[in-house]
Nucleic acid binder design. Structure first.
Lengths: 215, 215
DNA sequence: TAACTGCCAACTGTCGACAGTTTACAGTTT
DNA sequence: AAACTGTAAACTGTCGACAGTTGGCAGTTA
């Protein structure tokens, strides 16, 4: 969907701006000053404005007439709403993955799970990066590019809900077990239970994120 | 998601351009000539380019470096992929609707169904407009704005797959029965069966659209 | 001191122009 | 006649400048 390796300044600006928002360098509530960001990226306002439109379409900024772009806040209700969408997408992805997975797909998922456990036992908290990697591997197995793309977008918004917050509670041990259970069910092609476990997994994740939100 | 009643030229251009693409005035495969369309809309290229970026994010045009925007073709495989996404979204919506529906929601859905049957018995083919209206009413009952927005986007792309084709085969009698069955199940809050019937309904619709595609 | 008003700076929205790339066409060669 | 090449037109990508709006600040008045 974002295929052609954008070499245009607008394309680069889109990537750079998305990074700025997702890393919390531009915090929720902050307005995107066009001249400032344009200078920072070393480009003019034209391409930057195009990039801002792109980010707005991804939902990472809101467009307010004559006030430009603003990174949106997200409360618990918004997180719940996002997870409703994510649940719809990833439960279906789990079903499809259970139907379509190859041995390679299973290996990829197992590899991610193994690395996660290694980190966990070494005392390192389960990094968000590896959780994303697992879901990414599952989506590859599902072979539904449109669903994968939408999951990517909603994952971004979920990340945004936690930017600027003290520190990531990370996923706990339960997530690792959920992942392994999913792998097993997908291996057995039990798509019904796979969807069920995915729903439970996302429900837990959602609850944990909401719990970590400030008041 | 597209909330603030865009009064900017870029916002108006986005709406106008989307209409141009969805009505088939710009056919799949055609390139969007910036100067031509800008003149046609009576604006300069700046705002138009921003609108094009917006449309690209909606998936209604593809961006090719140094060649601008092009309305994408869609083959049977693409339609199937789109309906995988739509199934994920609308089955979950059916479940949510079955859980959350009020009497008002049910009335709205029944009203749409009634009008559809009236048209059908009067010999008028089931207009696409009313099919969209039913799904819209169901999404309102589901009360999940993010899911509703994504359904809108995917519906647009589905419409796009049929632009420029001889004539719409329309939905047949089966769809009306599906709709009524869905209403009943949602009324009874039988979310499991509602999702099941929605899946069957979308599967039928998908098959019919693919059948109507050229070669 | 509080509220109101008018001005000014900052920022967004828009436009026209220039530069670099692509594409089509004409001319040339084999 | 077909293929190749060079050139010119067309189009996209980018920039700088101008116009209109918003928001804050100072000055004034009650």
């Amino acid at each position: 969907m974002t295929q052609p390796l954008h070499l245009s300044l607008a394309g680069q600006a889109l990537d750079a701006l998305r990074e700025l928002v997702l890393t919390g360098e531009i915090l929720p509530g902050a307005r995107v000053n066009e001249v400032e960001v344009a200078n920072r990226l070393g480009i003019s306002r034209g391409p930057l404005r195009e990039a801002i439109r792109g980010l707005a379409a991804e939902g990472l900024v809101e467009l307010v007439p004559h006030k430009g772009a603003r990174v949106p806040f997200a409360d618990a209700a918004e997180v719940r709403a996002l997870f409703e969408l994510r649940t719809a997408l990833e439960c279906e992805a789990a079903k499809l993955a259970a139907t379509r997975r190859t041995e390679q797909d299973l290996d990829r998922m197992r590899a991610v799970s193994k690395e996660s456990r290694k980190n966990y036992h070494a005392g390192v908290k389960f990094p968000h990066r590896l959780d994303l990697a697992f879901h990414q591997a599952l989506l590859e197995a599902a072979r539904s590019p449109h669903i994968a793309e939408q999951v990517r977008l909603v994952q971004q918004k979920v990340i945004l809900t936690r930017t600027g917050l003290p520190d990531d509670p990370q996923h706990q041990h339960g997530s690792l077990d959920d992942h392994d259970e999913l792998i097993e069910l997908i291996e057995q092609q039990d798509w019904e239970k796979a969807a069920q476990i995915m729903r439970r997994h996302l429900s837990r994740t959602c609850a944990q994120i909401i719990k970590s939100l400030p008041d």
